[in-house]
Amino acid sequence: MVAKRIIPCLDVRNGRVVKGVKFENIQDMADPVVLARYYNESGADELVFYDITASVEGRALFTDILRAVASEIFIPLTVGGGISSLDDFDRVLKCGADKVSVNSGAIKDPSLISAAAKRYGDQCVVLSMDVKRVGGSFRVFAKGGREDTGIDAIEWARRGEERGAGEIVLNSIDTDGVRGGFDMEMLRAIGEVVTIPIVASGGAGKMEDFLELFKYDRIDAGLAAGIFHTKQVNIRELKEYLAVNGVNVRL
C-alpha cells in the first residue's frame, strides 16, 4: 500500500530558505540547495518549494534555484508561490517541478484549477489553503495569510476537488510555527468532505505530533519546515519512530 509521506517545506526568498511564525517574523535559515540535498539524504518523501519572493528578479533567481535542486534531487517536487496562470505552471514544470501548488491565484480565478487539471492532469494540481478560525468557522486567507477572503474553508476545499485539484495542502495559520501539534480539528472538518489526498501543515513540534496526525486515516502526508530545518526532528528518525508505531512509511 501507499506509504504516508513526510514532506519538508522550503520557503524561498531572495535565494535563501526562510521561516516565520504564524506567517510573520520571517528569518533566514539556509541555502535551499544544501538543505534539499540534506533532505534527500535523510529520507524525505517529497519536497515542497514555495517562492515567497516579491520581485521579478527574485522570481528568476527562484527558477534558477529550482532547477539546481531538481537536477540533483530525485524525489517528487511540488512548487508554489505566486502561481496565477497556466504560463506560471509551464515555467515551473519546465524547471523540474512535478506538481504545482495554487493558492491566492486560485482564489482570484478558480477556473485556473480546472484549466491546469485539464492541461497537466489532476495529479499535477495541488490546492494549497491557508486556513484560520474567524468567529466559529474556518476561513480561507489569501496573500500569504494576510487577507481574509471571507470564503468558508470547507466549501473551498470541496469546490477545489470538484474543479480537479489532485491533492490539497491544509495550512493552519493558527498553529503555524507554534509547534504545539497539527490543527486536528480543522483537518478533520475538511477531511470529511474531500476524497483527494490531504497534506497537513502547520504546528508540528515533535515526533509524537506526526503519530497523532496519522491516527486520522484521511491524512496522507505531514508537512513541516522549521523543526526539520533546525534538525530538531530528523526525518529518518521520525519515520523509524512512525514505523515502530504501526504507520506505513518508506524507509
Partner: peptide, 9 residues
C-alpha cells in the same frame, strides 16, 4: 481506495 494510485509503494 484513492485513484490515482499516487505515492510511494
Amino acid at each position: 481506495l484513492k485513484v490515482p494510485h499516487m505515492g510511494w509503494n
